[in-house]
């Protein structure tokens, strides 16, 4: 059982009510929002309705909101060797 990772790349402003409704049903409220849905015929049909607006990947498990956020976070440019009050091995 795998999942669709769906990200809204283009906004639906100015598009018909049907399109906005499909996005709402998928749970995509603003651009760059990411949702996970199990692979099924229903979801496939919904994606096909908004195929011009979204980017889709097939993934093994749904990520939490925090995990998606961490993936989008840029590299800080440093790494922590050890914290204060801690002996490094």
């Amino acid at each position: 059982m795998s999942y669709f990772r769906i990200t809204l790349m283009r906004s639906a402003i100015g598009l018909p009510q049907r399109t906005t409704g499909v996005l709402k049903a998928l749970g995509l409220k603003k651009r760059m929002a990411t949702v996970f849905h199990p692979v099924s015929l229903d979801v496939a049909g919904q994606i096909m309705k908004v195929k011009e607006l979204v980017s889709v990947q097939e993934v093994d498990r749904p990520l939490t909101k925090q995990e998606v956020h961490l993936q989008r976070k840029p590299d800080p440019g440093y790494y922590i060797e050890c914290h204060s009050g801690q002996e490094d091995a």
Partner: peptide
């Protein structure tokens, strides 16, 4: 997008 959807359904 369409290719991804079709492959996922097939798999």
């Amino acid at each position: 997008v369409v290719d991804t959807v079709s492959e996922a359904l097939k798999r």
